[in-house]
Write a protein that binds this DNA or RNA. Sequence first.
DNA 1: GTTGGGAGAATTTTT
DNA 2: TTCTCCCAAC
Length: 641
Amino acid sequence: MTDWPSLLNPEQCAAATAPDGPLLVLAAAGTGKTRTLTYRVAYLTENGVPPERILLLTFTNRAAKEMLERAAQLVGPAIDSLWSGTFHHVCNRILRRHAPLLGYPQSFAILDRDAQLSLINRCIKATVSDPKTFLKKEVIASIIGKAANTRRTFADVIGEMTFREPISIADAVTVAERYEAGKREAGAMDFDDLLVLTLRLFDEHPEVLRQYAERFRHVLVDEYQDTNLIQARLVDLLASVHRNIMAVGDDFQCIYSWRGADFRNIMEFPERWPGCRIIKLERNYRSTPEILAVANACIAGNRGQFEKTLRATRQGGRKPTAAMLQDADAQSQVVVRKIREALAKGYCEKDIAVLYRSHFHAMELEMTLKRLRMNYVITSGVGIFDSAHIKDTVAFLRLCSGTADIFSFGRVMGLLPGIGEKTADRLWTKLGSAFDPRRPEARAKLDSLIPAKAQAVWAPLSELIRAYVDEGLETNGNRAVTRFLDVWYDAYLQRAYDNADDRAADVAEFAAQFRRNEPVTEFLYEVALMTNVDAESAQAVRDAPAIHLSTVHQAKGLEWPVVIMLWCMEDMFPSAKALSEKIDDSEERRLFYVAVTRAKDDLTLCLPNRRRMPNGATLYLKPSRFVKEIPARLLNTRYGI
DNA sequence: GTTGGGAGAATTTTT
DNA sequence: TTCTCCCAAC
């Protein structure tokens, strides 16, 4: 039996070994939240709860994986049968079994953002005569998403909005309806559908809900502050039979409200689950007292939250630095100097992170680091799975494995000379909106439909599809991808891109993600839900000897000894765009708080007061309100480089 | 219908 | 500077 009190502090221990019943754990930053959840899982299994009867919902697949790996060290490999992952991941898993009940094929496709936008674009063109004067596809997408995540109708949401130019609400509604119809027709779901349709599944088929609610004796939810209405409802339903729900979160760290996250979920949890136990974790093990003092000062500007104060357990260190600078160049220089100092003090490159509000804030620094040949990795805006070359590869695998839909089919056809959207659509229709590569007639039919101009280029692909079926590559994705690359795609990349070699290397890396003997289709079902932080190589990247560049959002849940924050200026952080869309600045302030609390030993805030705009103009910026709110005595302010 | 060139706009966060 | 869209030539 494990001696829990010796491994955990009293609050952590109380949470990990709590008796059955609803439980809310308010875990401030750096207080051992992950540790507590991991031990909770271990405690439950050690006390006779079979792992397959535990559901662990996390914000990223990466977080789930890490917790399970740690729990496995405590209780062994049986833990693998536990259900875990993001909401989207788990919903996908459930829907793969029951989609036909909702009129979707079992092999339904998941529309990623690009596919979603292109479908919306088609719907716009089919609806309005002059798309220029109409809402942009991104705007329509965000309205559709908002409606889905807040459980309202599109018409309701758009009805509340105001527009500079008059636009036809009726047309917008038609576009949204066509979009829904288009998804239906293709048997596809977008990201929000995964949540919405799982909820509908549970509503319309209580017997299915019952099956899962009985199965999961314990439901554990990490990062509960970032759940939206649908997610909270799903959790409530799944925990409705056994009532063993453990929600872990920190209302100070709710930073995804633009995606529908509603921290009222966490605030109102005690009312929704009467009799729930509340445990607060406030002992911070991560940061120096000086950093925590700044963190506490940052968040003090927000109201209406659970009272929590970070209490230091570590001994004194150094005050965080505010570097008052001229411009981006000076900022880059300070970062470089800071990195060199840290390395001289004995830190490794992977101990250092540079954080910023938006991807483009890191552009100048990235060029400097590249020029100086310093090792760095950047979690960029486009994840590896979002890149065109990986999508091409995935689309081709779909075609090979007989799970192609109009989107993946069109993608592959688009790689051929002389075939564009229209021709691809026509071919798909002629194929009967389906393609089963196992049937030789189907393959022959497709071959015969390819226009003469593309025949020569197509032939090796056709042969590859045949080989995929005949040589049993459906359980050897690695080999299928490698051959695709060697036989055909590499040459295509060379023709189409100037950075073809980098892309080819990505595809080769992608091939390595397939496990031997795992059905390729299983992997394909998941691939749309994977992000760059979830990639198999992400762990390797984080362990690599390199400085980490990341947005604050993507840094959630991580920590580094040395943290440098860029552009702590008004309009940058807080972001002007975000402020214009929100009632107040509280979410931006929480984001700033998240950034500050990533630092363990050393924190530097950069405040460059000039910014060069793309058109060459210079913009003068004021220091961020979030820096000004910090009492001066808590910071070591320095001027110049 | 497709493709490539050229002009123009422009930067929030992501499952 | 990088993506996106539009138009004109095949």
